[in-house]
């Protein structure tokens, strides 16, 4: 996608977000939204462009699967942490676990960290220079058994076949 086309798509997305947030399709409001969107694009620092590693259809399908898993994790997470908090003895075994990210791109690293943090009982505290996640777990023994395999699955979904290989530096 050319730079101009990408900017136009981003501008349109910002304008639509503005229209949805203000809830008005009045021409004056849309004109103001167009100006605000252009201002945001002008002031925003340049974002790194990661090459698309698969076709648009496969990428959209993977994004949908990732979003569905994320939504399910958010619901499970809310319920599980609630059950722990209201339990009279609060059966937690906290600890911090080092988990190799295996991501090859900064976007994969960031989205993996986000997905781990919405996973029930897990929270990314720090990301090491070698791409290692330091994850705080409410049940460190249970998380230690599944963390590496879960991260490899997450990375493969985000970065396509071969994801989960050499770390992003």
């Amino acid at each position: 996608m050319s730079r101009r086309l990408r900017l136009a798509a981003e501008w349109l997305a910002l304008l639509l977000a503005y229209a949805a947030l203000t809830g008005s399709a009045h021409p004056g409001n849309l004109a103001l939204g167009a100006l605000v969107a252009a201002g945001v694009l002008a002031l925003r620092p340049p974002l790194p462009q990661a090459p698309l590693r698969r076709g648009p259809a496969a990428a959209a399908l993977a994004a949908l699967r990732f979003a569905a898993r994320l939504a399910a994790d958010i619901v499970r997470c809310g319920i599980q942490v609630t059950a722990l908090v209201v339990h009279p003895r609060m059966p937690i075994r906290p600890g911090i676990l080092a988990v190799r990210s295996g991501c090859r791109t900064p976007a994969g690293l960031a989205l993996s960290a986000h997905a781990i943090t919405v996973t029930p009982g897990e929270l990314v505290v720090e990301i090491g220079r070698d791409g290692t996640f330091y994850v705080h777990c409410l049940d460190v023994e249970a998380s230690a058994r599944a963390a590496e395999a879960d991260q490899a699955r997450r990375c493969a979904l985000l970065e396509g076949p071969g994801g989960g290989g050499e770390d992003a530096r």
Partner: peptide
């Protein structure tokens, strides 16, 4: 949540009653 946890770590606040701590 990540930003607050990272800030706590950089301020030297360690986890209490941790069964395991791999954090340098």
């Amino acid at each position: 949540s990540h930003a607050l946890a990272s800030a706590a770590y950089r301020m030297g606040l360690g986890p209490r009653a941790a069964r395991r701590n791999d954090l340098p």
